[in-house]
Lab assay of single mutants.
Amino acid sequence: LETFPLDVLVNTAAEDLPRGVDPSRKENYLSDEDFKAVFGMTRSAFANLPLWKQQNLKKEKGLF
């Protein structure tokens, strides 16, 4: 999966995202380093959170 810089994904409308980016899964296009910096946890820890908590975190970080 291709990764993009944080500033390309945060608070970006679906139509302005790079081609192929799923707007409902912007976090998947962050590098592992950016993911950890944004969410303060690994991808696996994030995946283990309840869906509502994942969505709330994504909203807080501008990735929803």
Rank of each mutant, 00 (worst) to 15 (best):
L1W: 15
L1R: 14
L1D: 09
L1C: 14
E2N: 10
E2K: 13
E2I: 15
E2A: 13
E2V: 15
E2D: 11
E2L: 15
T3K: 09
T3H: 11
T3P: 06
T3V: 13
T3L: 08
T3R: 10
F4E: 03
F4S: 03
F4L: 08
F4P: 02
F4K: 02
P5S: 07
P5L: 04
P5G: 07
P5D: 07
D7G: 09
D7Q: 11
D7E: 14
V8M: 15
V8Y: 15
V8D: 07
V8N: 05
L9K: 01
L9T: 03
L9P: 02
L9E: 02
L9A: 03
L9Q: 02
L9W: 01
V10I: 14
V10T: 09
V10D: 02
V10R: 13
V10Y: 05
N11F: 06
N11V: 07
N11M: 08
N11E: 07
N11G: 10
T12E: 06
T12N: 07
T12L: 09
T12K: 11
T12V: 14
A13V: 10
A13S: 13
A13P: 13
A13I: 09
A13R: 14
A13T: 10
A13H: 10
A13M: 10
A14Q: 10
A14K: 11
A14L: 12
A14R: 10
E15V: 12
E15M: 07
E15C: 13
E15N: 11
E15T: 08
E15W: 03
E15F: 03
E15A: 13
D16L: 10
D16T: 07
D16P: 06
D16C: 15
D16A: 10
D16E: 12
L17E: 03
L17C: 06
L17A: 04
L17R: 02
L17P: 04
P18V: 03
P18K: 03
R19C: 15
R19L: 15
R19I: 15
R19D: 15
G20C: 10
G20F: 08
G20A: 09
G20R: 06
G20W: 13
V21L: 08
V21A: 04
V21H: 03
V21S: 03
D22T: 03
D22W: 02
D22H: 05
D22A: 04
D22C: 08
D22V: 05
D22F: 03
D22P: 03
P23L: 07
P23I: 08
P23Y: 08
S24Y: 12
S24P: 03
S24W: 11
R25W: 08
R25T: 07
R25E: 05
R25L: 08
R25S: 08
R25P: 02
R25M: 10
K26N: 02
K26D: 02
K26H: 02
K26P: 05
E27N: 01
E27Q: 04
E27R: 01
N28Y: 12
N28E: 14
N28I: 12
N28W: 12
N28V: 12
Y29W: 12
Y29Q: 02
Y29K: 03
L30K: 00
L30S: 01
L30I: 08
L30H: 01
S31E: 04
S31W: 01
S31I: 04
D32R: 05
D32E: 11
D32C: 07
D32P: 08
D32Y: 05
E33M: 10
E33F: 11
E33P: 08
E33K: 11
D34H: 05
D34N: 05
D34A: 06
D34W: 04
D34E: 08
D34M: 06
F35E: 00
F35R: 00
F35C: 00
F35T: 00
F35W: 03
F35Q: 00
F35I: 01
K36L: 15
K36P: 02
K36E: 14
K36N: 14
A37R: 12
A37Q: 12
A37C: 10
A37E: 12
A37F: 13
A37H: 11
A37W: 12
V38R: 01
V38S: 05
V38M: 06
F39W: 01
F39T: 01
F39Y: 01
F39R: 00
G40K: 10
G40W: 04
G40V: 05
M41A: 01
M41T: 04
M41F: 05
M41E: 00
M41I: 08
M41K: 01
R43N: 01
R43T: 03
R43P: 06
R43Q: 06
R43M: 05
R43I: 04
R43A: 04
S44P: 08
S44C: 13
S44Y: 14
S44F: 13
S44L: 13
A45L: 09
A45F: 10
A45K: 10
A45C: 10
A45N: 09
A45S: 11
A45E: 14
F46T: 00
F46D: 00
F46L: 01
F46V: 00
F46Y: 06
F46E: 00
A47P: 00
A47G: 11
A47I: 10
A47R: 13
A47N: 12
A47Y: 14
N48E: 14
N48C: 14
N48V: 12
N48S: 15
N48M: 13
L49M: 10
L49T: 02
L49D: 00
L49P: 00
P50C: 06
P50K: 04
P50N: 04
P50A: 07
P50L: 02
P50E: 07
L51K: 10
L51F: 13
L51C: 14
L51Y: 13
L51H: 13
L51I: 12
L51N: 09
W52D: 11
W52Q: 11
K53H: 13
K53T: 13
K53Y: 12
Q54I: 03
Q54P: 00
Q54S: 02
Q54N: 00
Q54C: 01
Q55T: 14
Q55N: 14
N56F: 12
N56I: 14
N56R: 13
N56H: 13
L57Q: 02
L57E: 03
L57I: 10
L57R: 02
L57T: 03
L57M: 12
L57N: 01
L57C: 05
L57G: 00
K58M: 05
K58C: 05
K58G: 01
K58L: 07
K59Q: 09
K59T: 09
K59M: 11
K59A: 11
E60W: 08
E60T: 08
E60N: 07
E60F: 06
E60A: 12
K61Q: 08
K61P: 00
K61A: 15
K61M: 08
G62M: 05
G62K: 06
G62N: 06
G62P: 01
G62S: 04
G62H: 06
L63H: 03
L63F: 09
L63Q: 02
L63S: 02
L63Y: 05
L63K: 01
F64M: 15
F64S: 15
F64T: 14
F64K: 06
